[in-house]
Nucleic acid binder design. Structure first.
Lengths: 269, 269
DNA sequence: CATCGACCTTGATCTGGATCAATGCTGGGT
DNA sequence: ACCCAGCATTGATCCAGATCAAGGTCGATG
């Protein structure tokens, strides 16, 4: 995934509210919709011809932080593939918003709505500047109906999203705020070398949101973590002494484990 | 953890007709695995040959209330199709359980785990005596890899499950306990003739569970609903006067609407 | 009919975490 | 350097809903 040159970024659409439809011209050469599709690991078994077809009318958008990609209740016009950046899906009721999912690349935004031709159940807002491939919904569905390999790939993608959602629900309902933070930090820390300071991957308020608590609560819990031998200053986390942390917070693979998008295969290897 | 009939705790296989296993025996008056598949609306575009193949090694089980169908973290051996009854999916952490989803017929139990060959993220317990078609996981995945129509059908099924999960999360996070109960009752009541008493579709503790609150809270909230012109005695709900209820609780199609399993079709009609 | 076991209800109490309200910190623009 | 806007911290307060603890109701069973 090369960095897109700003030159070609004309596909950029800016729509702080409302759908980001753009009567943009056909695809441009380099970081193109086509190459983004080609660079998507979980699409690697899809025939090139199908990817060509998907990319044909598709556009690659660069969308700045804060933009709204679509509104809750809107009927999908596009299948949107997040190529870089991050997007928050927010359930909306009146004025209140709640985080449903935090989407990271490379993934589809709410494919379920596109497949079923049903309204989106959430609003999508860009958190970190994002690059997206927009594929006409009709084209996407036609391709699914035609190409079995694509169908299997999307099935795998959706299955993974479903499992992530279940894990989310479980951590929220089975653990206290402190446990959620503890496990989150433990997860961060233990995939780095021991003793090496780690930095938080995003702004604290977003992490708090993701963990289902108010920013104030997150802040308080963070300082409280000193109790378990963990020091936080700014966005840097240091773990002079890991054991107490591990003793207090047990990671559960059925909640915390990563949930990668797998290519579908009927049998093991 | 009350279970009425702990005696016959686990399922007994009910081969369609004869006692032997591999009965791909054609239409029998008694419900067979094959006829259950054939009677599943969202499989209606799947070729008969594929259904035959799925049914070939499958068995139809009758499982009493209280039984556990599978455990969290178990690796799926079967794709399980719920044909009648109801099943609760419970997230488990240590001794605590939380309801993830309440599955009603005709639907697959956690297809995502079966597809991705990953451990179940929940325990499945039968609430109301259930009939299930058990299809060998390998057979199921092979069929998916072979039959495009089946793949599309399962995609639709999974998409719907995903959307239900989102709706669940939204009602839990965006509404108070009273609102959840109000909307639940409103939903029940308004699909019946006005003025006609309605009965709760299941034991109160299960409803409370489904709505994400303690049974005591549910009970209290129920009596509190008199305030909105709604009278409950036992499991019978009477609505002498609907308007106040509707005024207080607004159903949101993005939360409360039904979410039926749709057959996939790329274009409208 | 008396007993028992499952539910449900009702009351009293507790508490995790949200909310409200300042106050600090930091980095970017003129 | 200064100011201002966003974010983070800290403290005080509040409250929805859980939890604990008795009863109450109803149907099945001996």
């Amino acid at each position: 995934m090369g960095q897109p040159s700003l030159m070609e970024a004309n596909a950029f659409t800016e729509a702080p509210d409302g759908p980001s439809a753009a009567g943009s011209t056909a695809n441009f050469p380099l970081p193109s919709a086509r190459s983004a599709l080609g660079g998507t690991p979980w699409l690697d078994r899809v025939p090139a011809a199908t990817l060509d077809r998907l990319a044909d009318l598709a556009v690659l958008h660069r969308v700045p932080s804060g933009s709204t990609l679509f509104e809750q209740a809107e009927i999908p016009s596009f299948a949107q593939l997040l190529v870089s950046g991050s997007v928050a899906l927010l359930g909306v009721s009146g004025t209140a918003e709640t985080l449903i999912e935090l989407v990271r690349p490379i993934d589809l935004l709410l494919p379920a709505a596109v497949l079923n031709r049903q309204p989106f159940l959430a609003r999508a807002r860009v958190l970190e500047e994002a690059h997206l491939v927009l594929i006409q919904a009709e084209v996407f569905r036609d391709a699914l109906a035609t190409d079995h390999a694509l169908c299997l790939a999307v099935l795998g993608c959706l299955a993974t999203q479903f499992r992530r959602q279940i894990k989310l629900a479980k951590t929220l309902k089975l653990r206290s705020a402190e446990e959620r933070v503890g496990c989150y930090l433990l997860g961060l820390v233990q995939e780095a070398a021991p003793g090496v300071p780690v930095r938080l991957p995003m702004e604290k308020r977003f992490i708090a949101w993701q963990l289902g608590m108010a920013r104030e609560t997150f802040s308080r819990v963070l300082t409280g973590m000193e109790r378990y031998g963990l020091h936080i200053s700014g966005d840097v986390v240091e773990v002079p002494d890991a054991p107490p942390l591990r003793a207090r917070f047990r990671l559960d693979p059925q909640i915390d484990g990563p949930e990668p998008i797998l290519p579908f295969s009927p049998r093991r290897y």
